[in-house]
Design a protein around this nucleic acid. Structure first.
Lengths: 355, 355
DNA sequence: TCTGATCTTGGTATCGATAACAATATGTGC
DNA sequence: GCACATATTGTTATCGATACCAAGATCAGA
């Protein structure tokens, strides 16, 4: 087909004129509605194809057709966590007309609010938000929008409507159990100073509370600014070691930091996991190929996305509000967490406990 | 504010009724158009706030307001390449009303076509596609849609409209130069069998052509199926070594594979980069913290996104079609590519050439 | 005070589809 | 062959905003 193309885009009326049937019939065929004779349906499709008709969802939506858009707001795409959630969502929406529309909040509730207002202007069929911590206006916007809402990642506390995630407290506590069972003491936290990362806070709180209950001392924490990276974990761990030479366990806010910390420990000639252990968080299988697998808590990001999508589908099909799906955080000991306490004597001769 | 909320969503007419001004005036204020008295503008904003009015872009768009949506179609989100491009786009759109709407093609032109039709139904202001290889129908859809199109990542060949990327051939050739300069021979390719990954094909073609021109032999290639991962690179490299023990250089289709290959070489006790070198592609700084940095070609994904966004902004502001921006592929030798030929004698005693 | 220019504001048509209902064709059983 | 049920198609109103044009208000200068 050659230029010049028609200046005006082809509309349903054009198709209607071309095939000699009413706009209504055209609309029915193009939406796949039943109740049109096979002969006429074919005529309509033929005309549409011939003219290169592309549906106009904008007009359709205004007239009352359902909008197959789901507003999804995540904090960032700077590591694989949220891309994987998005892929899970995409898979969950497969076979439905639903489509994610992405917004980035940059970990700021204010930005989240702005982005949400922006996305709600398109009257999406549902909304997916990250975490449970939202501004008052955000709550108000959602209440008025009157659409299913799914909050993902975090399940500590009560959500707006539906919820898919895991308890960050439980995740932290789970790792604490592993630390306690392994007999590590003198724990240090490697954390982001990312303001308002409630999930990190809950996780560390759950972790520390459990340690405290078991009488395991936490020495303190070191913070980094900005995005996570392996080198940052390296310097951060070095800093921690210098400050607390007696540290026996480094609990890192994510796997990138933990991987860097592992390198730092190896560079310092420390015996991992016998003398000192460490763990990250998230279960980035990206790092599965390192010489040693870092202990981590798998948060099943893809699965969270899939479940969220499925929940939306159910809600749109009429399910009652308030669906919840709590995923179990799975501690993976990797090669940086010994599995049982080592008595001092044995420890000194350097027995390796493999997982 | 308490339930029950009004069953019907608040419209501009409601705001108009509340503040006693015409819908037209309300519309002007809410769009920030000039020409409304300060007193009335404030009244409108007050009413809108009070009633919790949320704009309806759908109605606005149908009435002729510009749609600030940019359809972006990328093949996948399974590694950081495209998330970074998306972040670049987001940054490039900062300060404009433009917003990406994401679609996934899964490396399939047919899926791309389907997703594009879906997204065009929303009459986006512009379209961003990955690569230069699209179905005939895709070309037709774009021609009819009559919006700016930016193709990203690849700049070999001629695009539909605008283009931001680098020449995959040049990238491959660039790495070939480094290989030739280092004096490696007996090269093996580690490639994905991802069907229709034209960029990989161009890259390897550019690489092999350059080697051939220099008389450096390419022994062959080994393929893997499915998603890239470090472990896959490991087994793939092991396979390559078994098949071609005389291999001196492994050129991998991306950095994940290369990282795995590096582990395999180390496990096999091979001397990297003296006896055997390797390189990946993409410049995933994720791997920057490994004990050795893998040689790679940085494709500046973030920058590609930013430039694409800027190009769209320019086009929408009236710039002529056909803008091009070619980024230079940057070879980073890392620690797995020796920088100059090593004479056999010296090689034998294991002199290390650091970058 | 009057006239024309400028600033504000409002009325009406319209965007392109779908919903709801009405009308016409087709088919069935007796 | 008739009356009624069913299948198919068409008509009209409407969704919620914006464009375009017209009208009323305001102001400066003569």
């Amino acid at each position: 087909m050659k230029p010049p193309y028609p200046r005006r885009v082809v509309t349903q009326a054009d198709v209607s004129a071309d095939c000699g049937l009413s706009e209504m019939t055209v609309s029915r065929v193009l939406r796949g509605q039943a109740g049109v004779s096979a002969r006429n349906a074919e005529k309509v499709r033929e005309s549409a194809r011939k003219l290169g008709y592309v549906a106009n969802r904008i007009a359709g939506a205004l007239a009352g057709a359902p909008v197959p858009l789901v507003a999804v707001i995540v904090p960032s795409l700077s590591n694989m966590v949220f891309p994987e959630v998005l892929m899970g969502l995409a898979e969950g929406f497969e076979g439905t007309p639903l489509q994610s529309v992405l917004g980035l909040s940059n970990y700021s509730p204010v930005t989240e609010e702005r982005v949400l207002a922006e996305l709600l202007a398109w009257r999406p069929a549902a909304v997916v938000l990250t975490g449970l911590d939202h501004s008052a206006t955000t709550h108000d916007l959602l209440a008025r929008a009157n659409v299913p809402v799914v909050e993902i990642m975090d399940s500590d506390g009560t959500g707006i409507d539906c919820l898919v995630g895991l308890s960050q407290r439980a995740a932290g506590a789970g790792m604490a159990q592993a630390v306690i069972a392994a007999g590590y003491r003198n724990v240090v936290l490697l954390r982001s100073n990312q303001q308002a990362d409630r999930r990190q806070d809950s996780r560390f709180a759950g972790f520390c509370d459990a340690l405290q209950a078991a009488g395991v001392p936490v020495l303190g924490s070191v913070c980094y600014r900005g995005a996570s990276s392996v080198p940052k974990g390296r310097t951060l761990a070095a800093e921690a070691l210098e400050r607390w030479p007696e540290a026996e366990f480094l609990y890192c806010t994510n796997d990138m930091i933990a991987a860097g910390a592992l390198f730092a420990l190896e560079a310092a000639g420390r015996n991992v996991p016998e003398d000192i252990g460490l763990a990250g968080f998230s279960g980035l299988e990206l790092l599965a190929g390192l010489t040693r697998r870092v202990a981590t808590t798998d948060v099943q990001r893809f699965e969270i996305g899939r479940q969220a999508a499925q929940m939306i589908v159910e809600r749109l099909a009429g399910a009652e509000p308030g669906l919840r799906h709590e995923l179990r955080p799975v501690v993976d000991a990797g090669d940086t967490l010994r599995l049982q306490p080592v008595s001092p004597a044995i420890n000194r001769v350097g027995i390796t406990v493999t997982s």
